[in-house]
Design a protein around this nucleic acid. Structure first.
Lengths: 343, 343
DNA sequence: ATATTTTATTGACGCGCGTAAAGTATTTAT
DNA sequence: ATAAATACTTTACGCGCGTCAATAAAATAT
């Protein structure tokens, strides 16, 4: 880094002795110029610290290198974690990720896509709300900008989907719970917006049937995003009314389980698989706090990293072969059973 | 929204019957044109759905309307929550917030400021790491783009600071704990990067002295970001070694407290202020999960909304009166005691 | 060494908008 | 009504870069 700041590519061309169009090619893709000139440019770059004006670049380039990432709620550690991984994967590939949260508000999902539009992104990675999402809006958006869905699937929407195989993961958990004690009841939200919740219910029903057990589903009222609170209030009510037929409850997700564990503690119910315990509670997702609940929560770990990386690589594959849309592909990763103390 | 898409302001000028420079003024500030013409433009806007190209706008405007928001770690619900509030406050004022997380990595704070630079933001709201932050780098950045710090203060850096008054809040907690039982020991990280941690230690010492009590500080090894794990490992060790002089522990923050609660549960120690309890644990921050711990955590609630709003309004005041830097001002909000069951 | 391919340079245009100057229309003041 | 102030239009330039066509230079092949 030397003295007088370089104002534009013209000046940098003059100083470095490279023509401006060549520099333009270089900044677009360093490998598109000859090795020797690349080295010359990089050497000049070390001395003068010039960077192209992003606004001018994006105005003129047909395709920007922006990637939009939209998640329903960054306040949910699951999404902040997977959002982080997606973000990093984009950076590694030389793209500029823009991470947007819809703050639990489906209408903000629309707004986010809308404001992304003006950034002319090359592609978008979207973890949609699901049922509450504006399906038509996403499809319309996808016609202009390729969209890859992750975490939550909406049939037929977007170029691809990457997520966890809820049938595999729930079956794994049901299998474990049946082997190690009484078969599980199922606790979930009454009208979940998230499609995974529906998949998990079906997976539970299927799996219980396969194990020759009676399925018992208990649904909590409430439409809001504060699952822990709902889990505590409704789960607590059910516990004190003694509605569960068995001593084992499989919660549709960890956040409900965290709430229910809190309720159980308040009611003086000892939760766990050891002796002296009268209730087993299991969750799904391996929420970052699942290992700190009392007792630590037995759950299913989703492969965050695999989902994030595959979503990103799928999008880039679509971007590069921008001819045929080919088939809409769905990739499902297996969940992993995490045995802790709660079940 | 009608048929053929409008490609640029020129076309929209032709269709709407308004000259381009006037439209330019309008989009920059709708109130800068006469009421009647404003209405004409807005009516045309409803029919034709045109929006200025953000890249062209930002390239030519002297000052963009971008606001950078940098937080140390979005995975920490505290920051995702306050980041959300700051984001919304910016949008309401007609600015475009860009929320960046440093993912717990101080060197990424530098990178984030660096990449913000190319977006030529009007101002930046920064929650710095503190001791681990690159002080010189932030100061240098602040010379080009006004920076307002929030949450964590670095003396003399940035145009202003907005946060919580740790001396008030810790004193409030110490006062409560002393009144309601044995005086608290203090549990914290040995070498915290966060300046609030240091403030809280000093506040604890001062407050204990004022109450005529002996101060006892216990420090956990570890430099990492996984406070819950550290709280459980180190806190658990201390509990089992019985090192605390009193039955009350005030943790420097909720995340340590959550870890310690988990350890106490594992050790079969009953935590709470009721009879039959042998340990009281209190935290600080009112972490979103604090109400779901076992037992629910007594803590100090920071006024997230007030901090976020004040940080934003302070920045905008500085942006508007861009003449004298005046004095660097520090605004501290009071914490609020939240009495739950753990202490 | 010459022919061929690859890569760089020169010169020029366009992207969509901010912005300034000068002139014209409209509103407000007197 | 006329004068003054305000708001708008016309015209034109510039921002920093992508990109293209024609040309020149360099690397590779024969």
């Amino acid at each position: 880094m030397a003295q007088g700041k370089i104002r534009n590519m013209e000046e940098f061309a003059a100083i470095s002795g490279i023509s401006r169009p060549t520099l333009s090619k270089f900044f677009n893709d360093p490998d598109s110029v000859r090795h020797t000139t690349r080295e010359r440019i990089e050497k000049a770059l070390e001395q003068h610290d010039y960077r192209p004006n992003v606004f001018a670049v994006n105005q003129n380039r047909r395709k920007t290198k922006n990637i939009g990432i939209v998640v329903p709620n960054l306040a949910d550690p699951f999404f902040s974690e997977i959002g982080r991984l997606v973000e990093l994967a984009c950076i590694e590939t030389g793209y500029s990720p823009i991470l947007l949260s819809s703050h639990g508000n489906p209408s903000m999902e629309r707004d986010n896509l809308d404001s992304l539009r003006s950034l002319k992104p090359a592609g978008v990675l979207l973890a949609p709300f699901g049922r509450a999402s504006d399906r038509a809006d996403i499809q319309k958006f996808d016609r202009d900008v390729p969209v890859v869905l992750f975490d939550a699937n909406i049939e037929g929407v977007g170029k691809a989907f990457v997520g966890t195989d809820n049938f595999q993961s729930i079956d794994l958990m049901v299998e474990y719970l049946c082997r190690s004690g009484e078969p599980p009841c199922f606790f979930e939200m009454k009208s979940p917006t998230n499609p995974n919740a529906n998949k998990r219910r079906h997976a539970y029903l299927e799996s219980m049937q396969r194990h020759g057990q009676d399925a018992n589903i208990f649904q909590a009222e409430g439409e809001a995003w504060n699952f822990e609170e709902i889990g505590r209030a409704e789960g607590g009510r059910m516990l004190s009314e003694n509605v569960f037929q068995t001593n084992t409850v499989l919660c549709s997700n960890d956040r409900l389980a965290i709430g229910m564990l809190s309720a159980a503690y308040g009611l003086g119910i000892r939760v766990g698989h050891g002796k002296g315990c009268s209730l087993r509670i299991a969750g799904h997702d391996d929420h970052p706090f699942a290992r700190f609940t009392c007792p630590p929560l037995t759950t299913i770990a989703q492969d965050y990293a695999a989902i994030a990386n595959r979503a990103v690589s799928t999008l880039f594959r679509i971007l590069e072969s921008d001819d045929r849309p080919s088939e809409r592909e769905e990739t499902l990763f297996d969940g992993r059973l995490v045995m802790r103390d709660s079940a």
